[in-house]
């Protein structure tokens, strides 16, 4: 398989064509909600992502709108599938694993546990060989982290009361 085919795995092309979570939806009543707009200034890729967190501290839904290359759009889509129903601790672990994967220069994580946890997101291993494209794959993850922080769900998970809207 060429480097190009390693980058554009079928799972990535499929997610780019049929993305999961596309189309912003309001959070159900009683959920913590946060929204984030992230832009990649070098190429103009952008994503607006909305997260709803259930009272039990798990992700209820991730919805988003965006435009950009197949890597950035597929990465948001794969991430959406991956973090739905995850706890804040699980989201933090997945985020750390995915960043490690992007820093692996095409080698992957070398751990079955880690790769099982990332699931379809391991398809982005090939992207990590191309330094200019890593930021494309990370755009959605940055939006998720920011929207969770804005929702107050991270603070709630750490035991402090969620910030009110005025304070945020």
């Amino acid at each position: 398989m060429s480097s190009l085919e390693q980058m554009y795995q079928q799972v990535i092309l499929d997610h780019a064509k049929h993305p999961v979570g596309r189309g912003l939806v309001d959070a159900p009543a009683g959920h913590l909600a946060g929204e984030s707009h992230q832009i990649n200034p070098t190429c103009g890729d952008e994503v607006t992502l909305r997260v709803a967190v259930r009272p039990d501290g798990h992700v209820d839904t991730v919805t988003w709108e965006g435009q950009g290359c197949s890597i950035s759009q597929a990465s948001v889509s794969v991430m959406t599938s991956l973090v739905t129903d995850a706890s804040m601790a699980e989201v933090a672990r997945l985020d750390a694993l995915f960043h490690d994967l992007m820093g692996s220069r095409g080698k992957g994580l070398g751990s079955d546990d880690a790769e099982d946890a990332l699931g379809d997101a391991t398809a982005f291993t090939g992207v990590s060989q191309y330094p200019a494209r890593i930021k494309c794959a990370l755009l959605g993850w940055a939006a998720l982290k920011d929207s969770l922080a804005r929702s107050g769900a991270l603070a709630a998970a750490q035991g402090s009361p969620p910030q009110t809207k005025e304070e945020a």
């Binding site: 060429s2 480097s3 190009l4 980058m7 554009y8 070098t42 190429c43 103009g44 890729d45 950009g68 290359c69 197949s70 890597i71 191309y130 494209r133 494309c136």
Partner: peptide, 25 residues
């Protein structure tokens, strides 16, 4: 096909082009 993806396929053939907004948003 997004411009980045176009550029990546061309790059695989050894062809260097610019992709993005070229500092002219």
């Amino acid at each position: 096909v997004h411009a980045h993806d176009v550029g990546q396929v061309l790059d695989d053939a050894g062809i260097a082009v610019r992709v993005g907004h070229h500092c002219a948003q």
